[in-house]
Amino acid sequence: MSTTPVLALRGICKRFGAVRALTDVELEIHAGEVVALVGDNGAGKSTLVKVITGVGPADEGVIEWNGRPVRIHRPHDAQTLGIAGVYQDLALCESLDVVGNVFLGHEICTAGVLDEVAMERRTRELELMDTLSIRIPSVRVPVASLSAGQRQTVAISRALLSDPKILILDEPTAALGVEQTAHFLDLIERLRERGIGVLLISHNLGDVKAVADQVAVLRLGRNNGFFDVLTTSQEQIVSSITGATDNAITHRKAWAWEAML
């Protein structure tokens, strides 16, 4: 794709003490593109998500938004740019009800007072509440009483509320049943049609092959190849994840780096 990516990561590094969680990671997401981020446990996927969403900012590297470098130090920075995330641990508030969770941080107010009626009505009008066919008995039940799939509906509804340009989905289908997963993949298709850039983190290569346009592989905190889903076999991706074949291109890049140093 020749257009400027909405979000681009250049040379991202992140350390936890002596451990290098991420080393020179590159990533590009264009509008209306679904990029799958895959990798084995401990490859640095969740760390990268935290870098993008401002939960755990990077130590080094540049983040570009529509071609211009930006700083993301806090979750608030990412939100203002238009990055929304649905996290692996879902990050919902147990003590609030569905409406409270969907609108957390974006409450509708009339004259400084919370407008519960407006929020409840808008929650019911949210597309997802119907289309994911995951039944929530009432939007006033506390989130604690919902099942994993239902919680995810709430989490995604919340992410979409702010009209994001980039949506990050961290292991979204892990807690879902077969039918729910199918609905969910439909949803991702629709997000793509709307022009939202989606970063999908998943262990399930079937899901990845079904919806993603590009696949970025992380291995031990480094890029280990970018693939076009249509032209790449699942075996190639797997071997790239496990390191059975080190990707030649990234290898050379790393070489070039070391030569410069």
Partner: peptide, 17 residues
């Protein structure tokens, strides 16, 4: 609402910005 949400999940509240 912020006070209640911190009581129910600090991380969720922080990630809500």
């Amino acid at each position: 609402r912020k006070i209640f949400s911190i009581g129910g999940g600090v991380e969720a509240t922080r990630r809500a910005g």
